[in-house]
Design a protein around this nucleic acid. Structure first.
Lengths: 154, 154
DNA sequence: CCTCGTTGGTTCGGGTTCGAACAACTGGTT
DNA sequence: AACCAGTTGTTCGAACCCGAACCAACGAGG
């Protein structure tokens, strides 16, 4: 109907802020993890997802769905993590095609070692410096957004 | 002083929502621009920054600062855009080292052609589906965050 | 049993990104 | 004038990531 071709002032500044914060924060987090633990952000995410799963293991597809990466991207990252000894691959007992990625002891150790620095940075960048209301507003906006998006991705 | 090693429940879910929304939205935007205009998101951003600047031109460094990319990344993207005829490079009159990227007529046209679809998608993903309060909360949270981050990067 | 459409995971090719190293230049200081 | 710390933009090597193509295996319906 009346769809203007450009974003208006409010939309634009919100959108720009969204892009900018995402870019900056991602870069800083990436940097910190690399320097501090030798892990990329995606690798760290994979470890976190695995550690959240019962037994510290998950099928590749579930892992790709939970993390924010494509199937091929996940294959690559898991290969890297396996090379580093942090993750092991097992065959899935109920499906010959399936592959189960599973945290090794070294994987757990690496995660425990990396977590405090990561948590501190996330708190510094993302939580502190916002008032309680700002943080609450941000959180509810983000989760509404996420709910909306989940519908779209099916 | 009492810095827990892990994020608590609220921090974690907000952080995850932030990462997830960023990843999903970026992917969808990337896709739409590619399909619709043959531009990547970073290329589109470069065009937008140039179009915002007086005369449609900007020094490389200013462009890299305004967009969300490294210097080398920008060199690459501008080279692509130049190959496509959307951007021209000029020497900077006041500084021999300087390079000025400048929108061509084709660049303006490409931007005008791409903008409506992009704006519509951003509105669909990012604006609509949120109540006025949610959007306001999200916006103020994001800009507070951005202000905080600018201090850190400055 | 046997299709046959679907799913799981890897491989491959190409494009994108980054940081470090580099060379050319600037502007201020002595 | 000669220096020198800092800036500018590019190049290079490596890592990363994605989509498409692919093969093997599932499982529902005949």
């Amino acid at each position: 109907m009346d769809e203007p071709a450009w974003l208006d002032e409010h939309e634009l500044s919100a959108w720009q802020a969204f892009l900018a914060t995402g870019a900056i924060i991602n870069r800083l987090v990436e940097q910190q993890l690399k320097d501090d633990s030798g892990l990329s952000h995606s690798q760290y995410e994979v470890l976190v997802r695995l550690s959240d799963a019962p037994g510290g293991e998950l099928r590749m597809t579930e892992l790709a769905g939970a993390a924010f990466t494509s199937k091929s991207g996940l294959t690559y990252q898991v290969a890297q993590l396996e090379k580093a000894g942090l993750v092991r691959r097992r065959a899935c007992p109920t499906d010959v095609r399936g592959v189960i990625a599973s945290l090794t002891d070294e994987g757990w150790a690496a995660l425990r070692a990396a977590a405090p620095g990561h948590a501190a940075l996330v708190r510094e960048l993302f939580v502190s410096g916002l008032s309680r209301e700002e943080f609450a507003g941000l959180t509810s906006g983000l989760s509404a957004l996420l709910g909306r998006l989940s519908v779209r991705t099916g």
